[in-house]
Nucleic acid binder design. Structure first.
Lengths: 194, 194
DNA sequence: CAGGAAAGTCTACAGCCGTAGAGTTATAGG
DNA sequence: CCTATAACTCTACGGCTGTAGACTTTCCTG
């Protein structure tokens, strides 16, 4: 699904990147347990054994996929939090990125869909504590920055799950403006020191 | 794990209830795909074939388990929302029910851990829209009640995922009072008309 | 242009899954 | 006490999973 149809010349780094991209997509859609190595491989136009060859085992691949998936959104979060009205900016970005037809925000979606797998949850906890939470917390001021950062991520993840994974009608079919207006004061409250 | 060790007399309704209880537990822990019929059966001191005999197929069992799991928390939610300070009451209940050692709130946990399974997500959406969201929405006043109800559920689910399923340190190891104080204004804002 | 290393594939193996129907055992009613 | 019926189990199938090592093809270098 990554678009490559021609056989692609033998290029280790490009193949590796293609596998990683496919892994992010499949893990985001099906979760850790639901994703099959053969399916990921097919998405990159490759066999499952090559995946093993590049990433060792499934856990290793998952850890890399989740790390890669989280790097991009974090950069966005960073710039958003530095603005004038961070709460509104987060709300707008979140509503826009989780729009029904939009390409899933794989960063959290991977974690979210993999929470039921014990191994995946452990890996996910380490990744999320070392990257997104830390980054958000660094931009907050006042007391309980870690807890507030964790709650921001909780709201983002919960909203994303209900809107994208579950597809709750009240969130998926509503006017985005309404959702933004409801979310803004919540984020605002968490960003500003309590 | 439901405690029954003796063979239990042949009692169809009791056996059915035992299977359902085991199903809630296993689905909550492992999600739809991760849960095995044999594991659920073993938890009820029974074979997998009997599960099939009582509930038809896995989808049917899942639908019943999720419906049963949601009925209890909804009743609690109802009484909580009728009180004087509903936001604080929800926050307190949520923090208490998701405490690290506590028995999981299987209602949302089942959905949450099963979101990656397409079939489970569809079943889950129907169940959640027909029961919890509807119930919460019915207790709200003002505009956008459906959206606000959905956001309440999103925050509850996200918090639960980050605290119980992922085990984020900032939420799992913090003073419950701090978490309650941070969550209260968020719920308060969603409960009262915007 | 040849050779060797790197890139990629083939076949296979246990182990689990949901499903299926035939077979067995305990319980209740006459 | 005996029997009919409901409750329950046994064995098995096909399909999927992650993993494994041996094999083949392509490309770069000398």
């Amino acid at each position: 699904m990554t678009g490559e149809t021609r056989p692609r010349k033998r290029d280790a780094t490009a193949t590796r990147a293609a596998i990683l991209a496919s892994a992010r997509e499949v893990f985001a859609r099906s979760g850790y347990d639901g994703a099959g190595l053969r399916e990921i491989a097919a998405g990159a136009g490759v066999t499952a054994m090559l995946v093993r060859r590049y990433f060792g085992d499934k856990e290793r691949l998952f850890a890399e996929a989740i790390a890669a998936a989280n790097s991009a959104p974090i950069i966005a979060t960073q710039s958003v939090l530095k603005g004038e009205h961070p709460g509104a900016a987060i709300a707008e970005a979140l509503v826009q990125l989780t729009a029904p037809g939009a390409k899933p925000l794989d960063g959290f979606l991977i974690l979210l869909n993999s929470a039921s797998s014990v191994r995946a949850a452990q890996i996910g906890r380490k990744v999320i504590e070392s990257a997104p939470q830390k980054t958000v917390a660094a931009l907050l001021e006042g007391e309980n920055v870690e807890q507030r950062a964790a709650l921001i991520l909780s709201l983002v993840a919960g909203f994303q799950m209900m809107r994208q994974a579950i597809g709750l009608g009240a969130l998926a079919d509503s006017d985005p403006r309404v959702l933004e207006d409801l979310l803004t004061p919540l984020f605002e409250r968490l960003v500003k020191e309590s």
